[in-house]
Simulated assay, not measured.
Amino acid sequence: MANILEVKDLRVNFKTFAGDVQAVRGVTFSVKKGEVVAIVGESGCGKSVTAHTIMKLIPTPPGKIVSGQILFNGEDLVPKTQEQMAKIRGKEIGMVSQDPMTSLNPTLTIGTQLGEVLRVHQGLKGEAAKERMIELLKMVGINQPEKRLKQYPHEFSGGMRQRVLIAIALACNPQLLIADEPTTALDVTIQAQILELLKELQNKLHMSVIIITHDLGVVAGFSERVVVMYAGKVVEEGNTEEIFYNAKHPYTWGLLKSVPRLDQDRSVPLVPITGRPPDLINPPKGCAFWPRCEHAMKICAMYEPPETEVSPGHRVSCWLNAEEVKKLTAKAVD
């Protein structure tokens, strides 16, 4: 199946008084048409910056795309102006932001905010726009849609506000939906409802989805492929089953160990990843994870690990999987 999105060697910096923060350092991944891809990693790993860069929403300055390509349907978005991107955002690529309370304007009704997308991108006004808004609110599971259109964001619960954001993102039937931490501010039961809704809409509309999260448990039954990021880089990528049952990077092992499991004895404590993420103004010389890795070798602190394909579609950047180290280890054993 053809790729709808290809991100190639993307690098994004943010200028600060202390120096340039290298937030995204050579990220490469792709999304096929109709595919659900999860980007996971702890806070500060660059996953949200990557998503906002795809939408060209990073503030410039201080943010800057240093290099790389973002190919959407074969067309590079990097050189496009904000005026050109305004025709793509909302229409071709939709986005559900992290915090529904701050993403919605508290001074405008839900109808005004939802109607703006339809007016700008589809030219719908009056009754035609109202009918479409009612249809969208029903689609995301909001009762009494006519009444809700006249209400303000503060009159909605957190889960309902998130549903409104999904309705706004899907108003123009985009080919790609980016959901940036869509369940972070919600309780567990509402999280499950939102993920179920997203999956149902993805199947119904046949769109591609990128879901960004720090919680691997969230994406277990939702995504088809997982991209694991650390310190602005992709450290492992593979289909969801491979990542959960045959992960190869110590950082991915750490993420999996820190998630509660139903098949595990509750007396077994969760194992957090020790240490702190690196300073991205002065990132480590070798593998960025080596100071926190219990499997680190001398070579990890000296050189960046090459990307190794351990099985079809399953790639990892770790010296433990590099052929050079395997050969040296085998030679030492002999």
Rank of each mutant, 00 (worst) to 15 (best):
200 E>F: 11
8 K>P: 00
209 V>E: 03
211 I>N: 01
126 G>Q: 10
95 M>V: 00
212 I>L: 09
224 E>G: 15
219 V>S: 12
207 M>H: 14
154 H>A: 09
315 R>Y: 13
305 P>C: 13
217 G>W: 01
62 P>D: 09
211 I>A: 00
263 D>H: 08
126 G>C: 09
39 I>Y: 07
112 T>A: 15
309 E>V: 14
148 R>Y: 15
325 V>F: 04
1 M>R: 15
66 V>F: 06
136 L>H: 09
118 L>A: 12
227 V>D: 11
319 W>Y: 13
116 E>V: 07
134 I>V: 15
165 L>A: 05
149 L>Q: 10
273 I>P: 01
115 G>D: 05
265 D>S: 15
205 L>H: 12
202 Q>R: 10
13 N>K: 01
301 A>W: 02
187 D>P: 02
39 I>D: 05
197 L>S: 03
202 Q>N: 13
249 H>K: 04
137 L>K: 07
245 Y>P: 00
329 T>A: 15
295 H>R: 11
215 D>V: 08
63 G>H: 01
157 S>Q: 12
187 D>T: 10
269 P>H: 15
228 V>W: 02
297 M>V: 03
77 L>V: 01
319 W>N: 11
243 I>F: 10
47 K>M: 09
10 L>C: 14
24 V>T: 04
254 G>T: 12
73 N>I: 00
206 H>I: 04
182 P>F: 09
85 M>T: 00
162 Q>E: 02
178 I>H: 02
187 D>A: 12
229 M>R: 00
40 V>P: 07
299 I>H: 03
106 P>Y: 08
210 I>T: 03
71 L>F: 06
17 F>A: 15
116 E>W: 06
245 Y>D: 03
188 V>H: 01
266 R>E: 05
133 M>L: 07
321 N>M: 14
92 E>I: 05
136 L>I: 06
175 Q>C: 06
239 N>K: 11
191 Q>E: 11
178 I>P: 01
69 Q>I: 00
261 R>V: 06
103 S>L: 02
67 S>Q: 03
230 Y>C: 08
